[in-house]
Each structure stands twice: as C-alpha cells, then as structure tokens.
Design a protein around this nucleic acid. Structure first.
Lengths: 228, 228
DNA sequence: TACTACATGATAGTATTACTATTATATTTG
DNA sequence: CAAATATAATAGTAATACTATCATGTAGTA
C-alpha cells in the first residue's frame, strides 16, 4: 500500500456520527484512542468516560462526535470494511484470470493484518483485532433491521456482493455464491478467533492460516464434479 | 424425540450456577422465562430485575441461582449444545456408512428447531433462536480464556470434535477436519441469521436451507480431486 | 405442637453507566 | 477585535448490576 492511499478517504455513512471525526484533531484522537481502548479492555467495558480520560478530553465532548459507543463501533468496523474493499478492488482490478482473481480476493479478505501505515491515526492491526472480536456484536442486536435500512452495513454488503461475483466468474453453475462469499468473510474472522482462543476447534495455527483453509474449501467446492 | 428423553438430563458445568435451577420450581421458572425474555428483548436489554417481574419473583432470589446474566447465557447455551449432542449421538449411533452418518450429523446440527416437546420448561424453538442471536456474545469477551479453562465451553468443544471425527471417517486425507467442523456449527447459525436479517448476504431462503448449503459445501470439499 | 432449617421476598444501599442539560472557557475565523 | 464555534466542566437523572440485611413463609423433624 505504501503512499498510494494519500488523498484517499474512506467514506462512512453520515448517520453514524454527529460530527465527522475526520474533521478535527479531537475527532481523530477519538478514533485513534477508541481503537486502542476497545482493543485493550473490550467493547463491553469501554465507555466514553474512560476514553475521555485517555485522551485528556471531556466525556461530553465525545458525545458531540458519536451518539453512543454502538455507533462508534459501527463507524470503526465500517471503516475497516471500506479499507478492505479498497484493497480488494485495488489488488484484483488488473487480474483477468477468474481463479487467480478469486484466489487473491480470498487472500486479502482472510489474511492477518500485519502493517499499520496507511492512515496515521488508525492502527489497522488493532482494528483488525477489534473486527475479529467485536464485529458480530454490531449486528447481533434487536435494532439490526432498522439499522440495516439506514444503510449501516452497506459497505460490508457491497464487499460480500463483490466476492460473490468473483465466485460466479469462476463457476457460474455454483448454486450458493452469496452464502459462500459471506462464509469466507465471516468464517475468516472466526477461524482467526479460534486460532487465538480455541486452538482445539481449528486446524489453523501459526503455520496453517485461515487463508489456506478457506482457499482450499472454496476451490474444492467450485467446479467440483461430486454431487451429493 | 417424543418421550424418549424421559429421565434424561443434560449435565451442565456446576460452576455456571450458584444453585442448580433444575432443583426447584423457582429455578425452572427462571430458565423458562429467561428464555422467553431474552428472546423477546435481546440479551443486552435483559436484566434480572425484568425477569423477576415476569415470574413474580424478587431480583435477589434470581441471584441465588445465577451470579449474573452472562453465566445464565452460558448455562442456556450449554444446555442447547448438550441437547444437540444428545440428538447427534442418538441419531447417528446406528449408522455405519460414514457418508450417511456425516450427512445426518450436518442435518441435525444445522436444521431449524421446529418442535418443542422434550423438556417441559424449556422451549427449544426459542432457545435455538437465542443461540443464533446471542451465542457469539458468550465467548467474544475478555474473559474467554479464563472461562474456557473453567470448562464453560466443554460441551461445544466435544460437539466439534465429534463432528471432526465423522469428517475424518469420510475422508482421512482431508487436512482441515476440525476447522470444517467448527465452520459447520458456526456458519450454520450465521446462515440462519442472514436468512432472517440480511437476505441479500445469503442464498438461503425458505426453500433453500443452511443445511443444503453446508451439506453441499462439505461433500464437495471432501474426497475432491481438485487441488489448488 | 413447636422448633429449626432453608428458601424466598422485601427493602435499602452502592458504584457505575449512559446519557442530557447548562454554563464557562478556549480557539478559530472573518 | 468581535463573533462564532469548539471544547471543557459541572451537575443531574434513570437504569444497571450488583451486595447486604432482615423479614417471612414453608417443609420437615422432635
């Protein structure tokens, strides 16, 4: 990625914030330190008061940027998926061969984030961790349908749809391209979680990555001759 | 299942409760109505106070059974997985053919619960819903490693391991049996959730079940000739 | 019948959370 | 420099997630 992203900004649904955090120093600080704090203590224990202490700012000031911590989580995870989408499009755009393209896509969507460079105030490694540990909580709520209507999950949905298209390019006869796409994204996160906390529930280790598992799964499923 | 389960009791880790809810009328009421209430208002909004109102009992009495609502959720989901394990073992025990056995196992683990009959005070249909919507929250916490050590996820882990063994029986050369087993369980729940709230993210509908999708996925992956 | 054990209920109290509202003080901009 | 705007400080509220204490009811025993 390097310096390529200069000038690139990830566009987030405006209803997720009261005031755009990208528009001020305090806003950027809120993003930067909320990532650190959520990563440190977990989303349940995270409060705006604690965040205020961390950044030497008042709780009430944070409320001027985000209505509540749920919206902040949606903001952060939307940003993450937007960043993923950018990487996906950028890296696969020039690839003509459908299999190669899908292979690359799976790699990008399921790899561990190792570098933190592109956006000064966002630590992508920590954010990747947050998505693994907290993303489900953003939609496993009673408000999910209303929030879905507001477009809060739009980026993620676009990502799944892009992936599904690539799957179809490889095998137009495959009956479950969308489910498979959502499985890649969701189970990718899950295998990373298992690797960390339930090693007995996964074959993924430091040597065997979720990427390898899911790549194998996808390519053995597509264009397969077996029918059962 | 019918009357077969009479006398069968699902054994739950004793550290999950202060006093065994199966040991008294109030305890059973707590289980029965907590399932209803969590299903109605969601785990976040659920409190012991509200539950107390529902069952005409005092908040403090509920605390004599469960330390907090997190432990109660672990109790309920452990019960669910124990019940699944019972069904799995019962239904697959007599099947000799490995493929047939795995087929049956996937069916049992990923189907929608439609009947509520076996345990008078536990509504299995609602509990299935709770597991779909809330199970992740029971392990996506900062305490997961400590609680895992306490054995709070033992039943689920045993289930995954049973499934993995069945996968190996079908294809001993397959490299990711445990990951695939955990994918069946976890993504099974997820596809049910998507079907309900994000139909554009899945191919599953009222006609096409998560069972069909996952069965297809598993059997096309195992004993596949492709290698990529 | 009376005694005791134990389960449950009622009440009170605490620290924290998740805010809202108001007022004061900086800082930026025209 | 004044006005507008951003941020900080303070206070307050209802709800949450408990803990502690004491009262009451009930079931079994002597």
């Amino acid at each position: 990625m390097d310096r390529l992203l200069q000038g690139v900004q990830i566009r987030i649904n405006e209803k997720l914030y009261v005031k755009d955090p990208e528009s001020s120093g305090l806003g950027k600080k809120i993003i930067e330190f909320s990532i650190q704090l959520i990563n440190d203590i977990g989303f349940e224990s995270f409060t705006f008061k604690k965040l205020g202490v961390q950044i030497g700012s008042n709780e009430s000031s944070i409320y001027r940027y985000f209505e509540n911590k749920h919206k902040l989580l949606l903001y952060l995870t939307s940003w993450y998926w937007g960043w993923m989408e950018y990487q996906l499009v950028f890296a696969t755009n020039s690839i003509k061969n459908p299999k190669e393209k899908l292979l690359k896509a799976i790699f990008i969507m399921t790899k561990t984030t190792k570098e933190d460079s592109d956006f000064s105030h966002i630590n992508e490694i920590l954010l990747n961790n947050i998505v693994i540990n907290e993303y489900s909580k953003s939609y496993l709520t009673k408000e999910v349908d209303a929030e879905n209507k507001e477009g809060f999950y739009a980026i993620y949905k676009r990502l799944v749809s892009r992936l599904a298209e690539m799957i179809i390019e490889v095998d137009a006869s495959y009956e479950y391209p969308t489910s498979l796409a959502s499985t890649i994204l969701e189970n990718g996160l899950h295998q990373h979680f298992l690797k960390e906390h339930f090693p007995s529930l996964t074959d993924c280790t430091n040597k065997i990555t979720p990427t390898q598992y899911l790549t194998h799964l996808v390519f053995n499923t597509l264009n397969s001759t077996t029918d059962e």
